[in-house]
């Protein structure tokens, strides 16, 4: 097991390397001269040349990469072209709100999704099953931004129970965005749990447990549910990535001051240092989430051999 962990840890080094090269290359992938792009269409040649010097664009590419990584590792992510403030500070400001929203979305959606999926499996073919799966398939099919708009329409504009949008730290502001963000994940978790659960119910140890007279509720919750959770846990990790991606849309709909909305603003004004930093930051998050998921999977599933 320890050997597998070490191997897996070593494995992420090339991934991080590739990710960092991609993020570095991002500016160079832009069509045309990056300095000219950043300076704007009508900048005079002197300004462009100054920017080129400042960005080190005259150095050979490998030198540029190592300079870039050296800066990244010391927390220097460059300056935002729009505000001229350090990108690091801009991101630090928005990191909390995004994580707060994503965690809230993940928490309720996993709890409800896994529970609904388990109920659907246990009451397979009964009304509980049909209801859970109808709600779940609707949840997968509804576009987040539309759900957000509908919730605003109903609960904020017509009923006036909750704020339309914004972020001042009140819990009431978290309700609509986190429901919008988590709806699809809850639905995915419900479906996934159901199918994992049904797979487990076909196993021989379930028949054995029933045959030796174990009570049905114990068969379901102890034998079946615990084994069904193995693939489900993998899924939770992947869904966290999905939530961070979804936050781009949800933050835009609800004017939530997080990384997702910041990214859209940066695309709109072509603020490339910001985009570069965000890509790097998101990538590192997902690489580590995958790592943790794999390790947890190895711990809970002794069946899989890693050799």
């Amino acid at each position: 097991m320890l050997k597998y962990f070490i191997k897996r840890l070593i494995n992420i080094i090339p991934v991080l390397l590739v990710v960092s090269i991609l993020a570095f290359a991002f500016v160079h992938l832009l069509p045309g001269d990056p300095a000219r792009m950043m300076a704007g269409e009508d900048a005079d040649p002197a300004t462009v040349e100054m920017l080129r010097q400042e960005l080190g664009l005259n150095d050979p590419l490998p030198v540029q990469y190592f300079t870039y990584m050296g800066k990244v590792l010391t927390g220097d992510l460059g300056k935002s072209l729009r505000t001229d403030l350090p990108v690091y500070d801009e991101i630090a400001l928005r990191y909390g709100p995004t994580m707060y929203l994503a965690m809230a979305g993940l928490l309720w959606s996993v709890l409800i999704g896994v529970f609904a999926g388990a109920v659907a499996a246990i009451y397979s073919g009964k009304w509980q099953d049909y209801t859970a799966m109808f709600v779940s398939v609707s949840g997968i099919s509804i576009p987040q931004f539309w759900l957000g708009l509908l919730l605003i329409q109903l609960f904020a504009v017509y009923l006036g129970w909750l704020p339309v949008a914004g972020y001042t730290g009140k819990l009431s502001e978290l309700v609509l965005p986190s429901i919008t963000l988590g709806a699809m994940v809850a639905a995915i978790m419900a479906r996934f749990t159901l199918s994992a659960f049904l797979d487990v119910l076909d196993e021989e140890y379930i028949s054995t447990a029933r045959a030796k007279g174990v009570r049905e509720s114990i068969v379901m919750w102890k034998h079946a549910f615990r084994n069904a959770l193995i693939p489900v846990i993998t899924m939770i990790g992947l869904q966290f990535g999905f939530l961070l991606g979804g936050s781009v849309v949800v933050e835009t709909v609800f004017a939530w001051p997080g990384l997702g909305r910041y990214m859209i603003e940066a695309v709109a004004v072509r603020d490339y240092p910001v985009l570069q930093a965000l890509l790097l930051l998101y990538s590192f998050h997902f690489v580590f989430i995958n790592l943790v998921v794999d390790m947890v999977y190895a711990v809970i599933n002794p069946e899989i051999r890693y050799d």
Partner: peptide, 20 residues
């Protein structure tokens, strides 16, 4: 490993990067 790298840019974020 390649798919790990692609996973590192989830759905809509990858799309936004490409669009950028």
């Amino acid at each position: 490993r390649t798919s790990d790298v692609l996973f590192a840019f989830p759905g809509i974020l990858l799309a936004i990067a490409i669009v950028a």
